[in-house]
């Protein structure tokens, strides 16, 4: 497919990532089971009258998208594509509670409107007056990668020159407690906290002075075994005319549960001589946490530097050219993403 350049990035996460000059040098160590994002002051981005009905996810999305566009010096993209695992779950919980507690009476529309999964992309479009292509993906841990793949396709088809791609998930209040309890009943539970965040990127067909890197390829795989994923990975690299030895950094979505064996096999068997990176201990696990990993990878390529907080081993390289990301959730929703310096 045609070249795609990452020209702008933005992150709202449980670390101080909204400040573009910081790159995980000083990190917050989270020990609780759930962690909220460090929210910027949304009044800097959203006027109070428009913002008063916005869900946390929408606010995060609007602020992060503004920053991602600004960092690429772009006012309005040709298309907006988002991913979310749970949508604005706080509002879904609120509407569900009202239905149950009031026996379907006295319900108001706001929390219902915020519960539609496309509400973030829609409200960004409304804010930017962007009438172009607009789609939202909701496929668990490949929600963000699905959005990214669509963006790459749009550029390839010459249907757009600049695409705003992003991912948003809220921690919420109730559903997450149920998830935490189910997780605790597992034999080897997720060890990282559960988190939330918004990550947006400006992806363009042309390179700029400030470009972060180039997006080479994405692959989404529904089902794989810890063994077959290795074959999938080699095939993926092969399609992109790369050898295993061409990969300079591997970014893994480890979260401590029993499915980390998917990562361990790759670490041990394929990538034991290159820098290995993890990130979910910093941002928490959520369906679009891999977008935080993507944000880390874009920064490594631009800054040519790996912060200590994400290192899984002590290997360093003088130059980082190809970064490969791999993520999965509970043995499904696998994705490979390949980034190259530019």
């Amino acid at each position: 497919m045609k070249a795609c350049f990452i020209n702008g990035v933005a992150s709202i996460s449980a670390q101080a990532t909204f400040n573009q000059s910081c790159f995980l040098e000083d990190v917050i160590v989270h020990n609780s089971k759930t962690i909220n994002a460090i929210h910027p002051n949304y009044k800097d981005f959203i006027n109070p009258i428009t913002g008063r009905r916005m869900a946390t996810g929408v606010k995060m999305g609007i602020a992060a998208s503004k920053l991602a566009l600004d960092s690429a010096q772009l006012a309005c993209p040709d298309a907006i594509i988002t991913g979310t695992g749970m949508g604005c779950i706080e509002d879904s919980e609120k509407f569900l509670n009202s239905i149950i507690e009031n026996d379907e009476q006295y319900l108001t529309p706001t929390s219902f409107i915020n519960s539609t999964h496309n509400t973030v992309a829609a409200q960004i479009a409304l804010t930017l007056d962007c009438k172009g292509y607009n789609v939202s993906y909701v496929h668990g841990s490949v929600s963000f990668e699905s959005a990214l793949y669509d963006a790459q396709l749009l550029l390839h088809e010459n249907e757009a020159s600049n695409v705003l791609v992003g991912a948003v998930d809220e921690l919420g209040n109730q559903f997450i407690q149920d998830i935490v309890i189910s997780e605790e009943n597992q034999s080897q539970a997720i060890l990282t906290p559960f988190g939330e965040g918004a990550h947006f990127f400006t992806i363009s067909s042309s390179r700029q002075d400030g470009s972060y890197c180039e997006l080479k390829a994405i692959q989404i795989i529904n089902i794989a075994t810890p063994d077959s994923i290795q074959e999938n990975l080699k095939e993926f690299l092969n399609q992109n005319r790369l050898l295993l030895s061409d990969v300079d950094v591997i970014v893994l979505g480890c979260n401590g549960d029993e499915f980390d064996c998917y990562y361990h096999n790759l670490q041990r068997l394929l990538f034991d001589t290159i820098p290995q990176i993890h990130y979910k201990h910093l941002c928490g696990e959520f369906f679009t946490a891999s977008a935080f990993g993507f944000w880390v990878a874009t920064n490594i390529l631009k800054k040519q530097y790996i912060p200590n907080s994400v290192k899984l081993n002590n290997v360093e390289k003088s130059r980082y050219k190809n970064v490969l990301l791999y993520n999965q959730f509970k043995g499904r929703q696998h994705s490979f993403t390949l980034l190259t310096s530019c």
């Binding site: 006295y106 319900l107 108001t108 529309p109």
Partner: peptide, 17 residues
């Protein structure tokens, strides 16, 4: 106050409740 059509729906519920 700058209210809009969604606010109107919210107010309809307030009147009912």
């Amino acid at each position: 106050l700058g209210l809009d059509s969604i606010d109107a729906l919210e107010l309809i519920v307030l009147l009912d409740k």
